[in-house]
């Protein structure tokens, strides 16, 4: 069994109007190759769930430029001025979610939990219109779980079964998004034989991963660059 597919074939699993969970914190742990494929496609009206929208013209920022996006759900968009501009012009809907609530909502989505109560947001405008409930004398707000039609994530290595390991803080939202997509596509720097990853180091078990694609970028000086 081998889950490796061509990067261009990954688009067969994504359609207009889908909700995509996209891994990454800034550009770290972002599936750059898959995002390039999407930016070059005619797939439109995507809702993207991701902590940020990359940077101007980079990572998810490319999809903003190429017009694939309808809506972004995440915690921090001000680092990409294109996102701010698109929102001002009414070209992009934005739903702002505290980072911890975002992570937990995706975790719940992957765990078959419909929603959860949290103290984060109590007393802020982000709690407006949300159900409140008191547990042990403290007030919590209800947040709904988040699931995706497709998760596109980035890992360091996969084995052919789809077990994944990550590079340092590039794990960020990837591991939890691996659990919450109807279809999960992992972009990796290297694919190895089953048994080459030690069970002690595997972070994402293969049960969550449907397809694997190879990253076309290579790391030089600690940064991913176009391979020549």
């Amino acid at each position: 069994m081998n889950k490796l597919i061509d990067r261009s074939d990954a688009l067969n699993y994504i359609k207009d109007g889908d909700t995509l969970l996209v891994g990454g914190f800034g550009l770290s742990g972002t599936p750059l190759t898959l995002l390039d494929e999407l930016a070059n496609s005619n797939i439109r009206d995507l809702t993207v769930v991701s902590n940020n929208l990359g940077e101007v013209g980079k990572g998810l920022g490319k999809l903003l430029v190429s017009g694939n996006l309808k809506k972004a759900v995440g915690s921090y968009f001000t680092t990409n001025r294109d996102a701010v501009e698109a929102w001002k012009e009414g070209k992009l809907e934005i739903e702002l979610v505290p980072q911890g609530t975002l992570a937990e909502a995706i975790r719940c989505g992957g765990a078959g939990i419909g929603g959860f109560y949290t103290k984060t947001g109590i007393g802020t405008t982000l709690a407006d219109g949300k159900e409140q409930k008191v547990f042990d004398g403290e007030t919590y707000i209800l947040e709904q779980a988040i699931k995706g039609d497709v998760s596109i994530i980035k890992a360091l290595k996969a084995d052919t079964l789809g077990n994944l390991i990550y590079d340092h803080t590039a794990r960020n939202f990837n591991a939890v998004m691996a659990t919450a997509g109807e279809i999960v596509i992992a972009e990796v720097d290297e694919i190895v034989e089953v048994g080459d990853l030690h069970p002690l180091e595997i972070v994402t078990p293969h049960v969550y991963v449907d397809h694997v694609v190879l990253n076309k970028y290579v790391k030089k000086g600690g940064v991913y660059v176009e391979s020549i």
Partner: peptide
């Protein structure tokens, strides 16, 4: 520098002895 070992401000950092890595959740 490894831009996959960064702080929340997205600056490159290092790990101390005894450090641990985990996901956002």
């Amino acid at each position: 520098v490894n831009m996959d070992l960064i702080s929340a401000s997205k600056k490159p950092i290092t790990m101390e002895k005894g450090a641990s890595l985990f996901d956002s959740s």
